[in-house]
């Protein structure tokens, strides 16, 4: 609270005391996340408004592969767990554990992006290009921007890992990792929403000739169950 104290502050990283006790950067991150809710909210709304309105295929039911996306969802969810362990390690000052957990998180993040690249490519081969129909435009835009968020998060975590590996005095601080973690978890919860709406619920939207709803990827699951 006492700003006067900072008048002679040495040029090392000292957390500035704030009115509310919340660190500036942490507050900034939460305001950003609140704002990003509106960003994804609008993209999801666009998808939902255009749901079922495409006039040519492929329709979601023709190509969406729910089982494989369930696996990639699981990977992203677990990366949230490793991220929170990284934060805990950073807070206790355990650089070695921090780097280990960060690497695990990065690998899982890359795994998720790998699944997405595979999925996009499979869709393209099936004939779903960006310009094909309303479903493709809104689907690729929404999941693409989510993927861009994940990619940015991976990049951020890599930077933190490099800094931690070199370990210049006290960096990254617990707060640095914490803030990156907030971003990472947010990307995860956005995916929770996307997965439910676009895959579990919207993944079965079929075109007019629903009789032959494609079963790509479902074969092995149905085989397993029956």
């Amino acid at each position: 609270m006492a700003h006067a104290e900072t008048a002679h502050a040495p040029p090392v990283e000292v957390e500035e005391a704030t009115t509310t006790g919340i660190n500036h950067r942490k507050l900034l991150m939460w305001v950003f996340l609140g704002s990003d809710c509106l960003f994804f909210g609008s993209l999801i709304a666009t998808y939902m408004v255009y749901r079922g309105q495409s006039i040519v295929g492929p329709y979601p039911a023709d190509i969406v592969d729910v089982p494989i996306t369930t696996i990639s969802t699981f990977v992203l969810l677990m990366s949230s767990f490793s991220m929170v362990m990284a934060v805990a390690a950073a807070r206790s000052g355990n650089q070695k554990r921090l780097i280990q957990w960060l690497l695990v998180t990065i690998v899982m993040g890359c795994g998720f992006i790998g699944f997405q690249v595979y999925e996009f490519n499979a869709f393209r081969v099936e004939g779903l290009r960006y310009e094909t129909n309303l479903f493709s435009s809104s689907f690729y835009t929404l999941t693409g921007f989510h993927g861009a968020h994940v990619t940015l998060g991976i990049f951020w975590l890599i930077c933190i890992t490099i800094i931690a590996a070199r370990n210049p005095a006290g960096r990254p601080s617990g707060l640095d990792v914490d803030i990156a973690g907030l971003y990472w978890h947010f990307v995860d919860i956005v995916w929770i929403v996307i997965f439910t709406l676009l895959y579990l619920i919207g993944g079965f939207d079929a075109g007019p000739d629903a009789g032959h709803a494609a079963v790509q990827g479902w074969n092995w699951v149905t085989g397993l169950v029956s």
Binding site: G21, G34, D36, C37, D188, I189
Partner: peptide, 29 residues
Amino acid sequence: VVAFFMHLKFEHGLLWQIFVAGLVLGLIV
């Protein structure tokens, strides 16, 4: 995830308000 992984359960109430404001507004919109 929000409450425990993001620690929001343990944070200053203001952060809840800010995030929930964005979340609820996005949902309503």
